[in-house]
Each structure stands twice: as C-alpha cells, then as structure tokens.
C-alpha cells in the first residue's frame, strides 16, 4: 500500500478511562476511497477509536494520520478534511432540517450562495428536500438519521466517519443509509464505518477490522477473514438434554472443527455440513437426546468472531 494511497493510518493507539483500558494498541490503515469497517460487539472500543480519530479524545499513546495530518499535531487540519456521523443523533431538534444544515455548514466554513447551494444538494442527497422546512424534532428516527448523515457531507469531506449509523432505525431507513454509504464511496470518499452488525460490514466493506475488548483481533477483506475459520459452515442446534452432555462426544466426531454451547444452544463449526450433520444426529440418538432444531449458516464474520473469541458477535 503506497503512502499516497493511505487515507487513515493508525499507529499503536491506547486510551484508558481510569482502570478501563478502552483501546489497547490499535493499529490499522485505511486506503483512500474505500469503505473500512470496524466490527465488534458493544464495548469493543470502536467509538473510543472513532472519537480519538475525530480529535474529540486525546490518545494516551500512539498517533494517527488522517489525509496526512496528525491528530496530535494538526487537529484543525484533520477536522477540516473530516466528516463525522456520530452514533447518537446530534442535531438541534427545534430547528428545521434546512436551518440545521445551514448552521453546520457555517461551522465547516461555508458561506453565502455556496452554502445555500450545498445545503440544497445535501437535502436532495438525503432525500429530504420536500421536508427541508420541517422541524427535526418532528421527524421519524430514520429521517433524523439521514439529516445526521447530511450534516457530515456538507463540506464534501475527503474522509467520513460513521459510527453505527443504523442503530435503532426501521429497515427501510437502514437500507437508504447503506445505499448512501456506497454512494459516498462511489463519489471518492473514504468511509470509516463502525458497526456491530456483521451483515452490514460484510455487505459494505472493502476491508474489515474486528475489535474486541479494546484490541484489534483480526483484519482483512471479508474473504480473507472467512478464510480464518477455514471456510467452515456453522451449525446451530438445540437439544432436549443439557448441552454439556453432548459437547465431549461431538468434539470427537470426524469433520467437526469447533464446538461451543451458549444459552442451551450448541454451535458446531464444520467443513462439510452434509457429511457431519448425520453423524451429529447419530451420536445424539445414542445419548437418548433429541435434536429439536437445526440452523445451518455458510461461513461469515459471525463465525470468524466466534472462532477468534469463543463468543457470539452480538453479546
């Protein structure tokens, strides 16, 4: 990866809040014009990392360059090339959508006709041109999310951070947001996207970094990450007996790579489900246990996370 092609370069970031080590030695690089996702469960350290890269938090150790500007030495330069979509809706609810965009545009240095024109463009991008004069407080959650994103687009930033932008919204709005993220990439923007939804990271990302407990535990393309679990299929089963009774038996079954149990459900990673599944039924029958449900999933990031941490991603 050539240095000129790097939008964000993070080196050994550390951040603690008292005893809590929120970010521990995180390093990664994001190429220009790509969508890079930070994937991890709640509390993994994604938002803290984004906050440091937004210059909102000062790292205890380490540094990051955004479009060549150091977050430590040139925070104002970093801010000027950056658009941030925070996890929470950060808008003035008693102002209209247009007034919000107008105000935030001024904060990014836009003025006069250029501001008015850009506000109108953004209203059209986020699909709210016809609701421009409605108060944001009266908007639905999805509409607010769209304005929330629109604010970050006003100054045509080179890099945009989106911190879990689809949390708590309806499927239609979610779809709109995901489409707009792809559209931003197509316009040449670099997107750093955090999520705990595996499907989003899988669908959107050119590169994905998986975070857990403040550490980066894996990184690469979706295909590269799936390779980590050896293209294994995940089989979730529920039984009429305690899971602990079948675990030692199933671990010994030929073709089984990994077995774990959570909340009465047993998860088995296998190379070929067609071969292994009959063996699992057979051994369960020998234990006088009945399998009441089976869910087969092709290899994905969920399996990767499980493989790496022993826990489900949504924990």
């Amino acid at each position: 990866m050539s240095a000129n092609n790097i939008a964000i370069s993070v080196t050994d970031l550390h951040k603690s809040f008292g005893e809590l080590k929120a970010v521990q030695g995180v390093s990664f690089q994001v190429q220009r014009g790509e969508i890079f996702s930070l994937l991890g469960p709640n509390g993994a350290g994604k938002t803290t990392t984004i906050s440091i890269l937004s210059t909102l938090l000062r790292p205890d150790q380490g540094d990051a360059q955004v479009m060549g500007h150091s977050i430590r030495r040139d925070p104002m330069q970093v801010k000027s090339v950056l658009g941030v979509v925070p996890q929470e809706i950060a808008l003035y609810e008693d102002l209209t959508a247009r007034e919000n965009l107008d105000f935030w545009g001024k904060m990014y240095g836009l003025r006069g006709a250029a501001l008015r024109q850009r506000v109108q463009e953004v209203l059209e991008i986020i699909g709210l041109a016809d609701r421009a004069n409605g108060r944001v407080g009266k908007f639905s959650g999805g509409m607010k999310r769209r304005v929330n994103i629109g604010v970050a687009l006003l100054h045509k930033p080179q890099v945009i951070y989106m911190d879990e932008p689809t949390v708590g919204i309806d499927p239609q709005s979610r779809r709109n947001i995901l489409d707009s993220v792809v559209a931003l990439k197509n316009q040449g923007m670099t997107v750093l996207y955090t999520t705990h939804y595996m499907e989003e990271a899988q669908e959107l990302s050119d590169h994905i970094a998986i975070m857990d407990r403040g550490k980066l535990i894996a990184g690469g393309t979706n295909a590269e990450l799936v390779q980590l679990v050896g293209e294994q299929t995940r089989i979730d089963l529920t039984l009429t007996v305690e899971a602990s009774r079948v675990l030692p038996i199933w671990r010994a079954v030929e073709g089984v790579a990994h077995v774990s149990a959570e909340d009465g459900r047993v998860t088995v990673l296998v190379a070929d489900s067609n071969l292994v599944l009959p063996r699992l039924f057979e051994s369960a029958t020998r234990l006088a246990a009945r399998i009441t449900s089976v869910d087969i999933r092709e290899p994905n990031l969920e399996a990767v996370f499980l493989h790496l941490t022993g826990r489900a991603l949504r924990d």
Partner: peptide, 14 residues
Amino acid sequence: EERTLPRLFTTPTP
C-alpha cells in the same frame, strides 16, 4: 447531553 457540543468540537472551529 444532546451530543451537539461534541459534534461542534469535530468541526474546524476552535
């Protein structure tokens, strides 16, 4: 609390 102040701090405004 409304998170608009932190957002303001992410803009190039001292």
